[in-house]
Protein backbone atom coordinates (compact mmCIF):
# COMPACT_ATOMS: atom_id res chain seq x y z
CA UNK A 1 0.00 0.00 0.00
CA UNK A 2 1.49 3.39 -0.99
CA UNK A 3 1.88 6.00 1.73
CA UNK A 4 -0.12 8.52 -0.26
CA UNK A 5 -2.84 7.30 -2.55
CA UNK A 6 -4.65 9.89 -4.64
CA UNK A 7 -7.47 8.47 -6.67
CA UNK A 8 -9.26 10.44 -9.38
CA UNK A 9 -9.43 13.67 -7.39
CA UNK A 10 -11.43 16.57 -8.75
CA UNK A 11 -11.60 20.04 -7.28
CA UNK A 12 -13.67 23.05 -8.22
CA UNK A 13 -13.48 26.65 -7.07
CA UNK A 14 -16.97 27.71 -8.10
CA UNK A 15 -17.04 27.02 -11.82
CA UNK A 16 -13.28 26.82 -12.04
CA UNK A 17 -12.34 23.15 -12.50
CA UNK A 18 -8.93 23.24 -10.87
CA UNK A 19 -8.05 19.56 -10.45
CA UNK A 20 -9.32 17.30 -13.20
CA UNK A 21 -8.95 13.75 -12.05
CA UNK A 22 -5.58 13.40 -10.34
CA UNK A 23 -4.22 9.88 -9.83
CA UNK A 24 -1.03 9.56 -7.86
CA UNK A 25 0.62 6.95 -5.68
CA UNK A 26 3.60 7.85 -3.57
CA UNK A 27 5.59 5.31 -1.59
CA UNK A 28 7.29 5.88 1.72
CA UNK A 29 10.74 7.37 1.22
CA UNK A 30 10.05 8.84 -2.18
CA UNK A 31 11.01 12.40 -3.04
CA UNK A 32 8.47 13.74 -5.49
CA UNK A 33 8.69 17.16 -7.11
CA UNK A 34 5.61 18.79 -8.56
CA UNK A 35 6.37 21.32 -11.24
CA UNK A 36 4.22 23.30 -13.63
CA UNK A 37 3.06 26.75 -14.64
CA UNK A 38 1.36 29.16 -12.29
CA UNK A 39 -2.29 28.26 -11.85
CA UNK A 40 -1.88 24.65 -12.93
CA UNK A 41 -3.15 23.42 -9.57
CA UNK A 42 0.05 22.44 -7.77
CA UNK A 43 -0.72 24.14 -4.48
CA UNK A 44 -4.30 23.02 -4.57
CA UNK A 45 -3.27 19.40 -4.97
CA UNK A 46 -0.77 19.67 -2.14
CA UNK A 47 -3.33 21.27 0.15
CA UNK A 48 -5.83 18.52 -0.60
CA UNK A 49 -3.39 15.94 0.68
CA UNK A 50 -3.63 17.14 4.29
CA UNK A 51 -7.20 18.35 4.28
CA UNK A 52 -6.44 22.07 4.07
CA UNK A 53 -8.64 22.08 0.97
CA UNK A 54 -11.63 19.88 0.33
CA UNK A 55 -12.03 18.02 -2.93
CA UNK A 56 -15.29 17.33 -4.66
CA UNK A 57 -14.74 13.90 -6.14
CA UNK A 58 -12.39 10.96 -5.78
CA UNK A 59 -10.45 9.96 -2.71
CA UNK A 60 -7.17 10.52 -0.93
CA UNK A 61 -5.72 8.09 1.55
CA UNK A 62 -2.61 8.95 3.52
CA UNK A 63 -1.00 6.49 5.89
CA UNK A 64 -4.19 4.44 5.78
CA UNK A 65 -6.33 7.39 6.79
CA UNK A 66 -8.95 8.87 4.53
CA UNK A 67 -8.45 12.60 4.09
CA UNK A 68 -11.57 14.54 5.00
CA UNK A 69 -12.10 18.03 6.35
CA UNK A 70 -13.54 16.60 9.53
CA UNK A 71 -11.86 18.24 12.54
CA UNK A 72 -10.84 15.09 14.34
CA UNK A 73 -9.60 13.56 11.10
CA UNK A 74 -7.41 16.59 10.40
CA UNK A 75 -5.99 16.26 13.88
CA UNK A 76 -5.19 12.61 13.26
CA UNK A 77 -3.69 13.40 9.88
CA UNK A 78 -1.43 16.04 11.40
CA UNK A 79 0.55 13.25 13.03
CA UNK A 80 1.34 11.75 9.63
CA UNK A 81 1.48 14.74 7.30
CA UNK A 82 3.53 17.86 7.88
CA UNK A 83 3.43 20.99 5.78
CA UNK A 84 5.86 23.83 5.16
CA UNK A 85 4.72 27.04 3.49
CA UNK A 86 6.24 29.60 1.20
CA UNK A 87 5.92 32.31 3.85
CA UNK A 88 6.99 30.15 6.81
CA UNK A 89 3.88 31.00 8.87
CA UNK A 90 5.77 30.83 12.12
CA UNK A 91 3.92 32.14 15.17
CA UNK A 92 5.55 35.54 15.69
CA UNK A 93 4.52 35.91 19.34
CA UNK A 94 6.13 32.62 20.37
CA UNK A 95 9.79 31.74 20.64
CA UNK A 96 11.32 29.18 18.33
CA UNK A 97 11.10 26.64 21.12
CA UNK A 98 7.44 27.43 21.79
CA UNK A 99 6.66 27.32 18.08
CA UNK A 100 8.01 23.81 17.93
CA UNK A 101 6.71 22.39 21.21
CA UNK A 102 3.14 23.71 21.02
CA UNK A 103 1.60 21.09 18.75
CA UNK A 104 3.49 18.09 20.16
CA UNK A 105 2.19 19.05 23.60
CA UNK A 106 -1.40 19.71 22.52
CA UNK A 107 -1.83 17.09 19.84
CA UNK A 108 0.69 14.38 20.63
CA UNK A 109 0.21 14.91 24.36
CA UNK A 110 3.91 15.03 25.08
CA UNK A 111 5.02 16.39 28.43
CA UNK A 112 6.82 19.74 28.45
CA UNK A 113 10.18 17.97 28.90
CA UNK A 114 9.55 15.47 26.14
CA UNK A 115 8.44 18.24 23.79
CA UNK A 116 11.48 20.37 24.60
CA UNK A 117 13.69 17.35 24.04
CA UNK A 118 12.06 16.79 20.66
CA UNK A 119 12.42 20.48 19.82
CA UNK A 120 16.15 20.44 20.56
CA UNK A 121 16.56 17.36 18.43
CA UNK A 122 14.75 18.77 15.38
CA UNK A 123 16.50 22.13 15.76
CA UNK A 124 19.79 20.28 15.73
CA UNK A 125 18.72 18.60 12.53
CA UNK A 126 18.17 21.97 10.81
CA UNK A 127 21.31 23.42 12.38
CA UNK A 128 19.65 25.95 14.67
CA UNK A 129 20.05 24.44 18.13
CA UNK A 130 21.23 27.82 19.48
CA UNK A 131 17.99 29.58 18.45
CA UNK A 132 15.66 27.85 20.90
CA UNK A 133 14.84 31.06 22.76
CA UNK A 134 14.88 33.46 19.82
CA UNK A 135 11.75 34.95 18.34
CA UNK A 136 11.05 34.35 14.64
CA UNK A 137 11.42 38.07 13.95
CA UNK A 138 15.05 37.89 15.05
CA UNK A 139 15.95 35.30 12.42
CA UNK A 140 16.79 35.53 8.74
CA UNK A 141 14.32 34.19 6.21
CA UNK A 142 16.37 31.07 5.68
CA UNK A 143 16.55 30.44 9.41
CA UNK A 144 12.83 31.00 9.79
CA UNK A 145 12.10 28.49 7.09
CA UNK A 146 14.39 25.97 8.76
CA UNK A 147 12.51 26.52 12.01
CA UNK A 148 9.27 25.94 10.13
CA UNK A 149 10.67 22.66 8.86
CA UNK A 150 11.75 21.75 12.37
CA UNK A 151 8.29 22.57 13.68
CA UNK A 152 6.76 20.16 11.18
CA UNK A 153 9.31 17.48 11.96
CA UNK A 154 8.52 17.66 15.67
CA UNK A 155 5.16 16.08 14.90
CA UNK A 156 7.04 13.05 13.54
CA UNK A 157 5.27 13.07 10.17
CA UNK A 158 5.69 10.31 7.63
CA UNK A 159 5.43 12.73 4.75
CA UNK A 160 6.36 16.38 4.47
CA UNK A 161 4.53 18.65 2.02
CA UNK A 162 6.49 21.70 0.89
CA UNK A 163 4.86 24.44 -1.18
CA UNK A 164 7.55 26.56 -2.85
CA UNK A 165 9.38 26.88 0.41
CA UNK A 166 12.36 28.69 -1.07
CA UNK A 167 10.44 31.10 -3.31
CA UNK A 168 10.21 33.89 -0.73
CA UNK A 169 13.88 33.71 0.21
CA UNK A 170 16.76 35.88 -0.91
CA UNK A 171 18.83 33.85 -3.37
CA UNK A 172 21.75 33.47 -0.99
CA UNK A 173 19.49 31.85 1.62
CA UNK A 174 17.95 29.24 -0.67
CA UNK A 175 20.89 26.89 -0.36
CA UNK A 176 20.67 26.36 3.40
CA UNK A 177 17.03 25.35 3.14
CA UNK A 178 17.59 23.00 0.22
CA UNK A 179 20.46 21.48 2.18
CA UNK A 180 18.05 20.59 4.98
CA UNK A 181 15.65 19.03 2.48
CA UNK A 182 18.48 17.03 1.02
CA UNK A 183 19.42 15.72 4.43
CA UNK A 184 15.84 14.72 5.07
CA UNK A 185 15.69 13.00 1.70
CA UNK A 186 18.80 10.94 2.40
CA UNK A 187 17.40 9.99 5.79
CA UNK A 188 14.41 8.49 4.03
CA UNK A 189 11.76 11.11 4.69
CA UNK A 190 8.95 11.13 2.16
CA UNK A 191 8.86 14.54 0.53
CA UNK A 192 6.30 16.04 -1.82
CA UNK A 193 7.58 19.37 -3.05
CA UNK A 194 6.02 21.98 -5.22
CA UNK A 195 9.13 23.69 -6.45
CA UNK A 196 10.71 25.97 -9.00
CA UNK A 197 14.16 24.69 -8.09
CA UNK A 198 14.60 22.53 -11.16
CA UNK A 199 18.14 21.50 -10.30
CA UNK A 200 16.98 20.25 -6.94
CA UNK A 201 14.06 18.40 -8.52
CA UNK A 202 16.37 16.74 -11.00
CA UNK A 203 19.29 15.92 -8.74
CA UNK A 204 17.68 15.09 -5.41
CA UNK A 205 14.17 14.10 -6.44
CA UNK A 206 13.19 10.56 -7.35
CA UNK A 207 10.21 11.50 -9.42
CA UNK A 208 8.85 14.56 -11.15
CA UNK A 209 5.21 15.33 -11.72
CA UNK A 210 4.46 17.94 -14.34
CA UNK A 211 1.05 19.47 -13.86
CA UNK A 212 -0.77 21.30 -16.59
CA UNK A 213 -4.33 22.60 -16.60
CA UNK A 214 -5.29 20.66 -13.51
CA UNK A 215 -3.95 17.33 -14.73
CA UNK A 216 -0.84 15.27 -14.22
CA UNK A 217 0.35 15.96 -17.73
CA UNK A 218 3.55 14.00 -17.55
CA UNK A 219 5.51 12.22 -14.86
CA UNK A 220 8.43 9.93 -14.45
CA UNK A 221 11.87 9.38 -13.02
CA UNK A 222 13.35 12.79 -12.32
CA UNK A 223 16.41 12.79 -14.55
CA UNK A 224 14.57 11.14 -17.41
CA UNK A 225 11.76 13.67 -17.33
CA UNK A 226 14.17 16.56 -17.69
CA UNK A 227 16.33 14.81 -20.27
CA UNK A 228 13.47 13.52 -22.37
CA UNK A 229 10.25 15.48 -22.03
CA UNK A 230 7.52 13.65 -23.93
CA UNK A 231 4.96 16.41 -24.35
CA UNK A 232 5.40 19.78 -26.06
CA UNK A 233 3.94 21.47 -22.97
CA UNK A 234 6.66 20.12 -20.70
CA UNK A 235 9.27 20.91 -23.32
CA UNK A 236 8.12 24.52 -23.45
CA UNK A 237 8.04 24.68 -19.66
CA UNK A 238 11.54 23.30 -19.24
CA UNK A 239 12.92 25.62 -21.89
CA UNK A 240 11.30 28.55 -20.14
CA UNK A 241 12.64 27.81 -16.67
CA UNK A 242 16.06 26.34 -17.31
Amino acid sequence: MPLVNIDNVHKYYGDNHVLKGIDLRIDAGEVVSIIGRSGSGKSTLLRCINGLETYSEGGIIVDQMEVTDDDSQIRKLSKSVGMVFQHFNLFPHLTVGQNITLAPKLVRKLSAEEAAETAREVLQKVGLQDKFDSFPGELSGGQQQRVAIARSLAMRPKVLLCDEITSALDPELVGEVLKVLETLATEGMTLILVTHEMNFARDIGDRVIFMHQGKVWESGEAKAVFANPQTPELQTFINAVL
Partner: peptide
Protein backbone atom coordinates in the same frame (compact mmCIF):
# COMPACT_ATOMS: atom_id res chain seq x y z
CA UNK B 1 -4.26 37.96 11.75
CA UNK B 2 -2.95 36.44 8.52
CA UNK B 3 -4.67 33.37 7.15
CA UNK B 4 -1.31 31.60 7.16
CA UNK B 5 -1.42 31.47 10.96
CA UNK B 6 -4.64 29.48 10.75
CA UNK B 7 -3.30 27.20 8.07
CA UNK B 8 -0.08 26.45 9.89
CA UNK B 9 -2.02 25.73 13.09
CA UNK B 10 -4.44 23.43 11.30
CA UNK B 11 -1.60 21.53 9.68
CA UNK B 12 -0.15 20.99 13.13
CA UNK B 13 -3.47 19.49 14.21
CA UNK B 14 -4.67 22.26 16.53
CA UNK B 15 -8.44 22.51 16.84
CA UNK B 16 -10.44 25.73 16.61
CA UNK B 17 -10.32 26.56 20.30
CA UNK B 18 -6.60 25.83 20.53
Amino acid sequence: IPKGQWEASRCLGLNYVE
